[in-house]
Amino acid sequence: MTSPQPHVTPGTDPQARPPAVAVPRPAPDRPTCFQDVILRLQTYWAATGCAILQPYDMEVGAGTFHPATTLRSLGTRPWAAAYVQPSRRPTDGRYGENPNRLQHYYQYQVIIKPSPPNLQDLYLGSLRAIGLDPMVHDVRFVEDDWESPTLGAWGLGWEVWCDGMEVSQFTYFQQVGGHDCRPVSGELTYGLERLAMYVLGVEHVMDMPFNAPGSPIALTYGDIFLQTEREYSRWNFETADTAMLLQHFKDAEAECARILDAPDRDGAGRRIPMAHPAYDQAIKASHLFNLLDARGVISVTERQAYIGRVRALAKRCADLFVTTEAATGANAAAGTAPGAGA
């Protein structure tokens, strides 16, 4: 394995053409279990110089919602991060019975700003890392433009097919929260369960080994998640208190607006705009909307209005974030520059 190169040397001009990143060469063997797939991706992306973040500690529908992607893709400051994000999609719950569908699953997310010129090669290296050799498998980049009406975001890219199966989403962000992305971030999203099932040759997600099959206490995905899938499916579809959820939605919306309306400066006169706390409320509203949707209490016409309300919040958070040092890199205290090469 070649030694990892940092993406961007701290202090370089962000407008300069970003350098290519050396593609790590992992050993060509296959993973044995779900966590092995995750660990290999972590190791691989760490070797490329990404900061390996931990999941965001809130309920989100996709890894994109993590502020490490949504907010950090804004502004000029270089950024490189990778992380697992537990994702919740209440309407996808199937009481653990469907071999491929879950209301709670994992995404692996990589976000690099500016997108390095060899991002495709880096991505293909990650497939090799989990045992998918593009000389044996048929890997294809098939047009698929990404859009998130909830985040006011869109980008161009592909879904990546491996032997006819979609294994990742590959996007060059063009706009987030209504702001043009300058520079452009490259985003990779892997659906971990589906990808791992393919690599491991498993037909039903619940049968997939989670830790090594030879472990003293070998656990399958079902051992860990079958019970929760059943319970949450029931709660999502049948039990959740819709009146309360609706109130929570309104509360989150109001709190988000209140935070954004607060003056930039605190009592001591320091400029501390609160984009992140406000954005948390936007995420919360988005998830509450998803729960209400699963309960079937949102009509087709109301749907657009709710999505519009969340988008309005996300946009205002973005508007505020781009004025902060985290976005511009201006006045960053020494030693705390985030993301600049990990």
Binding site: Q15, P18, D145, L156, P183, V184
Partner: peptide, 18 residues
Amino acid sequence: PKSMRWGSGNLRWVRPLH
């Protein structure tokens, strides 16, 4: 029909031009 920017550049192409 749709074009994009990439990296830090200003050029627009359908996908990154190498």
